[in-house]
C-alpha cells in the first residue's frame, strides 16, 4: 500500500508582474518555486505555512486550476501539466476541492439540490432519478438534513455550508480532495465537527487528502505526512510524527514554538522571529528564510539550500545539515 496517487516534481508557478502603459512584464512573483512532494493513496498530506507562502497556489496548480509555469504533476499515470483539456475534464471527476470560505464558494442563487446536482450534470452522470438518490445519500453522509434540499445557501450557518461544500466535492466519488483551509473560517466547536466528518468520509470512501492549513494543531491531528512551505519553497518535508517531535528547519522550529498552548501551566520557550517576510517577487538569493533566521550563516545568503533526506521520510532544505 505505498502506491503514490499524486507526485509533484519541481513545480513552479510564477505570476508575471506587469507595469506601464504597454503592460510589459517587469518581473515575476515566484508564488511556487521548485516544490516537489508526493502523496500516497489513502493518506492525508498537510501543506502548512504562513499567508503568502504559496500553499494555496500549490493546491490549485495540483488541480490544474492554475497552469504551472514548469514542473510535472503526476496523478496516477498521467502528467496533468501536459494532458489535453478534454482529458483533464475527465480527470476532474477524480479530484475535487473544498475551499476556505464557505460563504463565498456556494452560488447564492442555487438551492442545495442544484448545488449538489451541478457536478453530476457537468459530468453527465445518471438520469434525474438516480441523481436525486445520489444527492440524498450524500446529504446523509455529510450530516445534512434531507429537508434542506430546496433551501438556499444563505439560510445556513458556516458549519452547515462547509458540509454542503464537502458534499459537493464528494458526490463525484473522487480519489483526491484538495481542502484549502476548510476549517479556518469556522468556530472552534464547529471546527471539530467538520474535522471529524473529514475523517469519517476518508475512512468510508478511501479518500486521499491534500490538506492546506496554517493551523499546525489541526494539521497534526489530521495528517500523516506534511510539507512546510516558506516563500514558495519547501522548507521541510516528512511524516507528521517526525516533524512535530523533532523539527529540523529553523523556520519549522519557530513556527511550532509560536503556537500558544491551550494550557496556562505550560510556558513555552519561544523562538521569536525578527523582521518581515521578503516579497516573493524579489526573494533573497540564497535561502528564502535567511532574513529572519536566527541561525543564519554566511553561506545561507548566497547559496540556495536543496532538500536533503536526513532520514527516511524526513527531509529538510537547510545548510545547517550539510
Amino acid at each position: 500500500m505505498t502506491e503514490s496517487l499524486l507526485e509533484v516534481h519541481n513545480l513552479k508557478v510564477h505570476f508575471p508582474v506587469k507595469k506601464g502603459i504597454f503592460q510589459r512584464t517587469q518581473g515575476f512573483v515566484r508564488a511556487v518555486d521548485d516544490v516537489s512532494f508526493e502523496i500516497t493513496r489513502g493518506e492525508t498530506f498537510g501543506l502548512v505555512g504562513e499567508s503568502g507562502c504559496g500553499k494555496s497556489t500549490t493546491g490549485r496548480a495540483v488541480l490544474n486550476l492554475i497552469k504551472p509555469t514548469s514542473g510535472q504533476v503526476w496523478f496516477g499515470r498521467e502528467d496533468l501539466a501536459t494532458i489535453s483539456p478534454p482529458q483533464m475534464r475527465e480527470k476532474r471527476k477524480d479530484m475535487q476541492m473544498v475551499f476556505q470560505d464557505p460563504y463565498a464558494s456556494l452560488n447564492p442563487r442555487f438551492t442545495i439540490e442544484q448545488i449538489l446536482e451541478e457536478p453530476l450534470k457537468a459530468h453527465q452522470i445518471g438520469d434525474s432519478g438516480q441523481r436525486q438518490r445520489m444527492i440524498a445519500d450524500m446529504m446523509d453522509v455529510c450530516g445534512l438534513n434531507r429537508s434542506y434540499l430546496k433551501r438556499y445557501a444563505h439560510e445556513f450557518s458556516g458549519g452547515q455550508r462547509q458540509r454542503i461544500c464537502i458534499a459537493r466535492a464528494l458526490i463525484l466519488k473522487p480519489q483526491l480532495i484538495v481542502a484549502d483551509e476548510p476549517v479556518s473560517a469556522l468556530d472552534v466547536s464547529i471546527q471539530s465537527q467538520i474535522l471529524n466528518l473529514l475523517q469519517d468520509i476518508q475512512e468510508e470512501f478511501g479518500l486521499t487528502y491534500l490538506f492546506i492549513s496554517h493551523d499546525l494543531a489541526v494539521v497534526k491531528h489530521l495528517c500523516n505526512r506534511l510539507g512546510v512551505m516558506y516563500l514558495g519553497r519547501m522548507a521541510e518535508l516528512g511524516t507528521a510524527e517526525k516533524i512535530y517531535a523533532k523539527p529540523l528547519h529553523p523556520y519549522t522550529q519557530s513556527l511550532l514554538s509560536a503556537i500558544p498552548a491551550a494550557d496556562p501551566r505550560r510556558k513555552k520557550e519561544r523562538i521569536l522571529l525578527r523582521g518581515e517576510v521578503p516579497s516573493p517577487s524579489n526573494p533573497p538569493a540564497g535561502c528564502a528564510f535567511v532574513t529572519r533566521c536566527p541561525k543564519a550563516e554566511a553561506i545561507c545568503k548566497e547559496v540556495r539550500p536543496t532538500m536533503i533526506q536526513l532520514e527516511e521520510d524526513h527531509g529538510v532544505a537547510c545548510h545547517l545539515y550539510t
Binding site: D187, A217, K220
Partner: peptide, 24 residues
C-alpha cells in the same frame, strides 16, 4: 468543557475530536 475538549492539541493525539453537537 466542550470548547476545551474540541480543540486539537499539539501534545497528545486523539483519534477523534470531541465536538459539541448543534449550533450556536
Amino acid at each position: 468543557r466542550g470548547l476545551l475538549e474540541s480543540i486539537p492539541n499539539l501534545e497528545e493525539k486523539k483519534r477523534r475530536l470531541f465536538s459539541i453537537a448543534g449550533q450556536v
